[in-house]
Structure formats: structure tokens, C-alpha cells
Amino acid sequence: MVIGLRKRISRLLDRLDGERNRVSSKPFTIQTNDAAPPTAPPTAPATAPATAPATAPVPIPATESKSTGPSAISAEAVREREMVQAPRLADAPEKAPEEDDGSIRIKAEVSKAGDECRFLTNRTILDGFSWWYEEAQDAVDSPLPAALFEMEGVESVLVDDSTVVVTRAGDRFADWRPMATQIGDLIREQLDSDAAPVGQSVLDSLPDSVEVETTVQQVIETEINPGVAAHSGFITLTHVRGNSVTISMGGGCQGCSAADVTLRQGIHKSFRDAMPSIGAIYDDTDHAAGLNPYFT
């Protein structure tokens, strides 16, 4: 009987050994067809001090020979990983600002989409506020925007403090330099003249920033967010300066390929319908960051 018991115990131990070997010989790869979130990493957290031991050893069988190349990870597994952003380092030290010799300096900066160009000047055009001229008739008593609308191809004009933003019609990839040079000359000419660049009717219409904040917040809560919620998105008001508004897009809106259309055709229109005196509307969302930018 004792012999029989020993045999049974021995068989059990053999089975246990076999099971242990089977588990430890599983290749270490990330599952390619696993829709579930990745399991907890067998490593120390990323915030561990530099002096901590690197990691607990992960069993990699000799037959796997460190198969850690691209074949060890699938596109699905890549998308499940968190996208982190390392701090961006400056390429070169900032140049010291040039001394003001009294001349008007204008720098042109073409937008990412290519449809508008921002002209940064060293003169205040509309102190602390902004104004959006949708068409030429909006600029009847504002000499600078009125002169810009006389140029062929100018679609809209935004004046924001010391900056002028011109949107043009036509090919967005066409070289801006010829037109920007003309616009620069025109802005310089206007700023050099005695006439105020922006009309009195605009100055009389500038709203209080508290009123702007209240109105925009209400539009976001009652119109915009219920609409974008269908796409798991949301909009947040992040800053109000005078009548200039900055928003950020979150959830499904962050990184969405339709974010620009939503901003220009949805958010801009809703804000301006509710309060026509709202000037610049900016989006400070980092659409390239996050888990899956452009895939949502």
C-alpha cells in the first residue's frame, strides 16, 4: 500500500513538473489577436528611481533567442500602448530681440493648413482685443481691413492686438510669398498713416470679457457638447482675453481628422451666432498627442 501511495505521489510530482515546464517554455510575445487591454507589465514602473534594479527577469526561452523585433509586436498591440511625449528641446538659443529703431517690422507666418497667413507686427492695432471681418462690407469704416479686402483673393481678415490674419481663397498650397509681400506693404502703409487702422464702430462694439466667457460657456454646454458627445468628444473653454476665446478639444475630438471642420464650421458659427462681437477663436489642443491621434 505504501509503495502504491509513493507511485501515486511520484506521478503527481511528474505531472506538476511537466506543467511547470510547459508554462515556462511559452514564448514571450504580445498576443496579436487579443482585444483585451495588455496585462500588467512584468517590470518596475516608469517612475522608478534610476538606481532601482532594471527589471525582474522575464523568462525568454533559448529557442526564442530574444525575438524582440517588430515581429514580436502587432499593430493592434502598438495601438494599445500609451503614447507618451518627451519634452521637446530647443534647437538653438532664442535670438535676442532686435532693438526698436522705430521702423515697422512685419513677420509673415503661413498656417499649417495653408489657407491663412498671420502677420505679426511690432505695432498695436487693436489693444487687447480682436475683430473678425467676414467680408468687405464689415470693414467700411476700418481702413486697414478695407484695404486688404481690395486685394484679389482675400476672403476674410482677423485683427488681434498687434496681429493681422488674412484668409485667402483658392489653392491653399500655392506660395504665399508674393501675396504676403503685398499684404506686408499694405499693412505698413496703413500703420504709417495717421488714420486709426480699426473703425470707431468696432471700438464701440467691443464686449466685456466676462460677458464673452458667460456666453461662450453657455453655448458650449447647451449646443456644442451635446452635439459632439455623439462622437465621445467634448469642448472646454480654456481662456478668454478681451473678446478672444481659446478652447481645447477632448475625448473623440482630440486628434480627430474632422476637428478642423468642427472648429471652423461648427464652433466658430455657434459662438458668433450667439455673440457677433467675438473676435479670434483659437484651439490649443495638441491633436498629435494621445493614444491614437487621427485614428478615432
Partner: peptide, 9 residues
Amino acid sequence: ALDTTNQVN
């Protein structure tokens, strides 16, 4: 710092 859960842009 990178580990098994992340990737850096």
C-alpha cells in the same frame, strides 16, 4: 522612460 506599456512620439 519607456517600458512594456508605452511608446514615445
